[in-house]
Simulated scan of single mutants.
Amino acid sequence: MNVNKNALIDRVAPQLGSRRAAAEAVEVVLDTIARTLAEGSSVSVTGFGVFEPAERASRLARNPQTGDRVTIPARRVPRFRPHQRLKDLTDGRRPLPTAGSSIRKDPKGTHAARDAA
C-alpha cells in the first residue's frame, strides 16, 4: 500500500491528538526539508537518512521526435540516502518495535540490531 500525504497525516493524527495538528506537523516538516534543499544545504535525520542537494552535470540527449541532439543543462536535484537503521527495518533484518519510534536511537549499552540477529 502506498502512503500519500493525506494518508501520512491520517497515520500521524492519533499520535498528535487531531488531524489538524498532524496536517500542520507534516506540512512544516516537508516544507522545512524542501526549503533547506533549495538553499543548497542537507537535512540529516538520525536513524532515518539524509536529504541532500546533488549537482547533475549537463549532458547530451536525443529528442525522440526529431532525433536531434540537445543539451540538457546542469542542475541541482534532491537525493536521499537512507540510514542503516532504515535499511535494516525495510529489509526485515531489524524488527519493528511494538511501541515507540522505530528510528529513535537505541539506549546506550544495547545493540538491538546485533541482539536481533
Score class of each variant (00 low, 15 high):
82 P>D: 04
59 R>Y: 15
28 V>N: 11
13 A>W: 03
18 S>H: 04
46 T>K: 00
96 L>W: 08
89 L>A: 05
117 A>W: 06
114 R>F: 01
104 R>M: 06
103 I>L: 10
56 R>L: 03
83 H>N: 12
68 D>L: 11
62 R>A: 04
108 K>D: 12
1 M>A: 01
80 F>G: 05
108 K>P: 05
108 K>W: 06
29 V>Y: 04
38 A>W: 05
4 N>Y: 09
49 G>N: 03
53 P>F: 00
19 R>A: 10
87 K>F: 01
42 S>L: 02
109 G>T: 06
51 F>K: 07
72 I>M: 09
75 R>V: 05
54 A>S: 15
41 S>H: 14
33 I>K: 08
3 V>I: 15
63 N>E: 14
117 A>P: 06
80 F>M: 00
4 N>G: 14
14 P>V: 07
104 R>L: 04
9 I>N: 10
88 D>V: 04
109 G>I: 04
13 A>S: 05
102 S>F: 07
10 D>Q: 09
55 E>M: 11
96 L>E: 10
58 S>N: 13
31 D>S: 14
38 A>D: 12
48 F>N: 01
73 P>C: 15
31 D>M: 00
71 T>D: 06
58 S>M: 14
5 K>Q: 11
13 A>L: 03
54 A>C: 13
116 A>Q: 01
67 G>H: 01
9 I>D: 07
67 G>F: 03
22 A>D: 08
81 R>C: 09
55 E>F: 14
117 A>K: 12
33 I>A: 04
75 R>H: 13
69 R>W: 01
95 P>S: 04
85 R>N: 03
67 G>K: 03
29 V>A: 09
109 G>N: 08
25 A>L: 11
12 V>L: 09
51 F>H: 08
100 G>F: 03
52 E>M: 14
33 I>N: 10
16 L>S: 06
5 K>M: 11
59 R>P: 09
46 T>D: 01
26 V>W: 07
22 A>Q: 11
23 A>N: 12
94 R>F: 13
88 D>H: 09
29 V>L: 07
38 A>S: 13
48 F>C: 04
12 V>C: 10
62 R>I: 02
7 A>L: 11
62 R>D: 08
55 E>R: 15
2 N>K: 05
12 V>H: 11
10 D>H: 08
96 L>Q: 12
101 S>R: 03
23 A>R: 14
36 T>S: 05
86 L>P: 01
92 G>R: 00
112 A>V: 05
112 A>D: 05
74 A>G: 13
32 T>L: 06
88 D>W: 06
42 S>V: 00
106 D>N: 11
106 D>M: 08
110 T>K: 02
27 E>K: 13
38 A>T: 05
73 P>T: 13
48 F>S: 01
63 N>K: 12
114 R>C: 00
14 P>S: 07
116 A>H: 10
45 V>C: 07
18 S>M: 05
40 G>I: 00
70 V>Y: 11
73 P>N: 15
101 S>M: 07
37 L>T: 13
53 P>R: 08
19 R>D: 15
111 H>S: 10
103 I>N: 02
56 R>P: 07
74 A>M: 02
23 A>T: 15
41 S>C: 06
43 V>A: 02
16 L>C: 08
89 L>N: 01
93 R>V: 15
76 R>L: 07
22 A>F: 06
99 A>I: 02
42 S>D: 04
94 R>V: 07
12 V>Q: 09
76 R>S: 15
45 V>M: 14
95 P>V: 03
73 P>V: 07
